[in-house]
């Protein structure tokens, strides 16, 4: 089957899944009374004062399907409800907090991928030697680490012991002033990128300094995950016949490992990209919470703790759509990377 029709089929397949996701999310809201649910439909602060009106307008005392219909048409017109925590519509809140979270992920993602692949390759190439044992023990510890605890330990050491080296929050106050001044144009609201675009080296370095601890906290578990996978995948590919052939041809060990073995070992790593994405979303909530780094994760946590149901469910919906799309992209990439995968094959 052709790639294009495969993509179209997969996109069509998304419709029932997303339909199910919305029913499920709406089902959760049914645990609440109509009064609490009213915030799902609010678009500005004044409406919050007139709840009975909202219940009337959106039929919050009507049967499930009527309410679902009303809600889903609101969602399609871009209204995800009112976020009490930040006092703005949920859609706007997602948009406002997204850049901070993107900034974290822009730095964490390459670290996770490159470190994981590099360490996994090294461990496999030095199988059963000290380097392998060392990295394996590190990986299993990293994989078992509670992210929130790792963050606290890093904070204890760097905020307490090496005071001022890696400060909290997103920017220091002087830099905050620069960023908010009129001459500094916020193209993306991602501090580091805006700093480059505005040619402000000091801002860039300052933003970077504030990013180091959260990025480490976010990356460690995922690096360990990729490393472990890469190691076993490398071991499998190092045992293959073409490696024997390559060695028999007299190729140097470096070429054999880095070219012949590693390229084939990368395929399983690509297939778990979806898991890594999910792991990062989970990690973002915890990391942003402990570092009071005001991005999507911090907002989701605030909303959950203060039982702001419209925000929590809006965030969940946003993430599930993103997650499903990421998985789609991963599957498409997979067929590109590994020509042995047949497009028409089983869809499980």
């Amino acid at each position: 089957m052709e790639l294009r029709s495969y993509i179209i089929r997969r996109l069509l397949f998304l419709i029932p899944v997303l339909f199910g996701v919305t029913i499920f999310i709406f089902g959760i809201t049914m645990l609440f009374s109509p009064i609490e649910r009213a915030s799902l439909y609010v678009t500005d602060a004044r409406q919050m004062t007139n709840i009975p009106q909202l219940i009337e307008t959106y039929g919050l005392d009507q049967p499930f399907w009527v309410q679902y219909g009303n809600w889903i048409s609101e969602v399609f017109s871009g209204n995800l409800g009112w976020s009490r925590v930040v006092g703005m519509p949920v859609g706007d809140a997602i948009w406002a907090f997204l850049p901070a979270t993107l900034e974290l992920s822009i730095f964490a993602t390459p670290i996770i991928i490159l470190m994981g692949i590099f360490l996994g390759t090294k461990a496999a190439a030095h199988k059963d030697r000290p380097l392998d044992h060392g990295t394996r023990v590190m990986a299993i510890f990293g994989w078992s680490l509670p992210t929130f605890w790792l963050g606290l330990i890093l904070m204890m050491v760097f905020y307490g012991y090496f005071t001022g080296l890696l400060p909290p929050s997103r920017l220091s106050i002087p830099m905050e002033l620069v960023v908010n001044s009129a001459s500094f144009i916020r193209y993306t609201h991602i501090n580091t990128i805006d700093a480059i675009l505005n040619l402000k080296g000091a801002v860039f370095l300052d933003a970077l300094r504030h990013l180091i601890l959260p990025v480490i906290t976010l990356s460690v578990t995922q690096v360990a995950f990729i490393m472990r996978l890469m190691r076993s995948s490398m071991l499998e590919s190092l045992g293959k016949g073409y490696i024997l052939t390559a060695r028999a041809k007299g190729l140097s060990e470096r070429v054999v490992v880095n070219k012949h073995a590693r390229r084939n070992a990368l395929i399983p790593v690509i297939t778990v990209a979806g898991y890594v994405f999910a792991g990062m979303v989970n990690g973002v909530v915890i990391t942003e919470t402990i570092f009071t780094y005001k991005g999507l994760g911090w907002w989701a946590w605030q909303s959950a703790v203060r039982l702001d149901i419209a925000s929590v469910l809006g965030f969940a919906l946003f993430n599930s759509v993103l997650f499903v799309l990421v998985n789609l992209v991963v599957d498409i990439l997979y067929t590109r990377v590994d020509p042995r995968v047949r497009l028409g094959g089983v869809m499980q």
Partner: peptide, 18 residues
Amino acid sequence: DIFLAFPALILAMAIVAA
């Protein structure tokens, strides 16, 4: 499929909050 369409912690957070 529907349940697996959420990152686990996010769905768990939503359920606990609810």
